[in-house]
Simulated assay, not measured.
Amino acid sequence: MATQTAATSMAAALAASLPAPSAAPVTTAPTYEAIPASMSKVIDIEAEIPLHTVQLDGLVATKILKHAREAPASTAHGLLLGLDLDGVLEVSNSFPLPHGGDDDDKATKSLARYQGSMLRSLREVQSDDSVVGFYQATSLGAFFNQSIIDTQAIHQDKLRHGGVVVVHDITQTARGNTSFRAFRLTASFLDAYKKSNFSSASLISHRLTFSSILEEVPLKVRANPLLSSFLGALAEPSSSPELGGGSKTSETFPPNFHVLELGATGLTRNLEQMVEAIDNYRTEEGNIAYLSRQIARERAKAENYVAKRKEENQARVAQGLAPLPEEDVTRLFKIPPEPSRLESLLLLGQIDAYAKSLGGTAGAGLVKMYGAKAGSGGV
């Protein structure tokens, strides 16, 4: 007992002789100064790196597939969210946009309110809310239309890297081949679009054809490891515990022999769409020819008027009289402007897409028929 008391007093004396422990240092929170708006573009290093790849997350691909399947016809469209890093546009999320109604002005305002509400909600849950483009469902690969051009032109003017439009072909999905392609407007077309000049001279100077309106950006779909493992587990046969664990049940994903059917799925619809596009192109070309003839007649009248006034002034000068004042021809003759050929370019793009889809369908059907013939022993 005496030994224990001595040890306690010695420990107390040692503790009293040691210096008092210093208080823990208080960490101060770092302060950040806001970047001035005038300097935000100067220090944006990512903006200097050109975009070369679009990486679509697997979740985004499934959301687009679901929206395209549930939406009527090919009206499915929505916004893509993500970020661009080292020249790769990483699309990590998306949300669908409602289809516009009959009243364009009212539908546009409603769409803007919905879009703003969705972005605010994503920001509140700390999810990606940076718009990097939009997606559009299409049929038979014919995605050339005025709506896509106008929307993409706005994105390339407002977004840092211009954004992309991801086109999803629902007909290819119905055939078992999921199709996602990313596009951007070319610089030459964007220059003509900003000037609103698609006359013949402008098309020649910008070297524009239907194939040079959009440029394709390489796209790849990224599936995270958990999703890949889940799909792999679904595809494997599973054992049944009720049967002792030794028997194997059928696969969750049964084999699909739909691609081996000899019937040309959608071939008739493809032909109908192509004929309709060709008719629309011929109508548009007829309208352009009619307006061109009107322009030629008005110009001829103006040129004849100028020639007559010039001859009359020469005669008056020869007689010693003062020449008549020259009048503004544009006020006397209303020469209409040259019609835009943008609609013709878009229709040619649609015809080309329908032709390629028809060629692919016909080629696959021909191979199936030859294979069936060989398998049946025919010569």
Rank of each mutant, 00 (worst) to 15 (best):
A68F: 01
L321W: 05
K158W: 00
Y135D: 00
S147F: 06
Y290Q: 13
I351W: 03
S110G: 15
S179R: 01
K220V: 10
E70S: 13
P36C: 09
A76C: 07
H77W: 04
S74N: 11
E46T: 12
E326W: 04
D169G: 00
I43A: 09
S92V: 10
L226K: 12
F180V: 02
A37K: 13
D103Q: 10
S211Q: 14
G359S: 11
L227E: 05
P36W: 08
R207S: 15
S117G: 11
E312T: 15
T265P: 07
I149N: 04
G163P: 00
E48T: 15
F198V: 02
T178W: 07
E312W: 06
A353C: 02
K310A: 15
G245H: 11
F230C: 03
S376L: 15
L227H: 03
A302T: 01
V131G: 00
Y135G: 00
S202Q: 12
E215K: 14
G320V: 13
A13G: 05
S110M: 14
I213D: 05
K368G: 08
S240M: 08
N224I: 11
A13Q: 11
S202M: 13
F253P: 02
Y370G: 07
S292I: 01
D84W: 00
L122W: 01
Y193C: 01
L291F: 05
D328H: 09
P237Y: 03
S240C: 15
D150A: 07
F143P: 00
S199G: 14
A12G: 08
P241Q: 15
L366Q: 12
M10G: 06
S74G: 06
V217R: 00
E311M: 04
L89V: 03
D86H: 14
K334Y: 09
V329I: 09
A315N: 11
S247L: 15
S376Y: 10
R269Y: 05
L159H: 00
H99F: 10
F144E: 02
N197G: 06
H168L: 00
Q55G: 09
A307Y: 02
F189T: 02
T31W: 05
K63Q: 07
T268A: 14
R175E: 03
S130G: 08
L219K: 00
E276R: 13
S344T: 14
R181E: 09
E276N: 11
